[in-house]
């Protein structure tokens, strides 16, 4: 499958997963296209569309937590920053993704909503 078709297929497949989680693709189409492109490359290299912004290790169970969409493994974190780490997905009510900050979980106080 050529990269362009694979990107469409991933998008179609991921949409079904993220919707019930309360997320949508970022309104920043350029970012979405670039990230999906990176995931196609990662899939070609590793066989799995991993998150383009988190590092793989030799520990398989850790790697499984960054298979896209990785929202379920980082729910509390991503709900607090209202986006996933790489910014491919945002909360459904987000209209300005640039306003969202990439804050690590250890810097977020429990229950804090980072706006």
């Amino acid at each position: 499958m050529n990269p362009g078709s694979r990107k469409k297929a991933l998008r179609y497949f991921f949409q079904k997963i993220i919707d019930p989680l309360g997320y949508k693709f970022s309104p920043d189409e350029e970012m979405v296209d670039f990230l999906l492109e990176q995931e196609v490359l990662l899939e070609q290299k590793h066989g799995i569309p991993y998150c383009p912004c988190q590092g793989l290790t030799k520990k398989r169970e850790e790697n499984m937590k960054i298979v896209c969409p990785c929202i379920p493994f980082h729910r509390e974190h991503f709900d607090a920053i209202r986006r996933c780490w790489c910014g491919l997905y945002v909360h459904k009510d987000v209209t300005d993704p640039d306003a969202l900050k990439q804050i690590p979980f250890n810097e977020i106080k429990r229950g804090q909503d980072v706006r």
């Binding site: 912004c53 590092g55 290790t57 030799k58 804050i103 690590p104 250890n106």
Partner: peptide, 29 residues
């Protein structure tokens, strides 16, 4: 990669990228 991950673990609880060090300060994200 192993060495890098160990260093990142030492400096911060979060092993995500970008992982920036400005002198002794670590900024993740």
């Amino acid at each position: 990669q192993d060495k890098i991950m160990k260093e990142m673990e030492k400096l911060s609880t979060t092993k995500a990228f970008p992982f920036v060090k400005i002198d002794d300060n670590v900024i993740v994200g």
